[in-house]
């Protein structure tokens, strides 16, 4: 049998120890510290700008119109009509948001469960976190255009079967995007294979 070099064994053990220390310290950085939690949040909100440099907004009516245009099945569109404008993020910020939200959900360890933690919880929490980041950036007179919708899916998408399902949506500088909350996969409303079968939209 080939003899192992004691020096290389020692180096290997040190490397293993190094990995353990790195992984543990990383866990401590995102995890709890006694009575405190260290929660991952998305980085600074990036608003979409118009050509004249002013911030872009949309309205509940405009979002409703865009969804009605592609979905003849749409029955109800719920939103708070006292909010006249919803701020639009630069599209790249959607990736920041979803990456951070994924880290947040992994950290808190919540699993999808009917009623206790289902689609409107995923969407509501994402909407609220986004709105806080918008306020933090100084935009106190608006909130996020993120909500959820019910779709009677006829085609499988994002690894989910064709059945009645709830999904999230977000408006960015590139338009409306449909998001699968269970895995963060998203596509534009135009490319969403079940867009004709959206039945209810909740912009909350």
């Amino acid at each position: 049998m080939k003899k192992t070099n004691p020096y290389s064994l020692m180096v290997t053990w040190r490397a293993v120890l190094f990995i353990v220390v790195i992984l543990c310290s990383h866990k401590a950085a995102i995890g709890g510290e006694g009575d405190y939690l260290t929660l991952p949040m998305p980085q600074n909100f990036i608003p979409a700008l118009q050509t004249d440099g002013t911030v872009q907004y949309t309205s509940g009516m405009d979002i409703e119109k865009q969804i009605r245009n592609v979905s003849p099945a749409l029955k109800n569109f719920y939103y708070n009509n006292t909010i006249t404008r919803f701020i639009i993020p630069e599209h790249v910020w959607l990736d920041h948001l979803l990456g951070a939200y994924d880290a947040f959900l992994s950290y808190i360890g919540v699993q999808g469960k009917a009623d206790t933690w289902d689609c409107e919880n995923y969407s509501g929490m994402l909407n609220a976190i986004t709105t806080l980041r918008i306020w933090r950036a100084g935009f106190l007179d608006t909130r996020a255009a993120i909500g959820w919708l019910r779709v009677n899916a006829q085609h499988s998408w994002a690894g989910l079967p064709a059945e009645l399902h709830a999904l999230m949506f977000a408006v960015t500088s590139k338009g409306i995007f449909i998001i699968e909350p269970q895995n963060g996969q998203y596509c534009s409303l135009a490319d969403y294979p079940n867009k004709k079968y959206i039945e209810e939209v909740y912009l909350f």
Binding site: A29, Y36, T38, Q43
Partner: peptide, 8 residues
Amino acid sequence: QVEYIRIK
């Protein structure tokens, strides 16, 4: 893209 907040 993540920023961390510390809270009780």
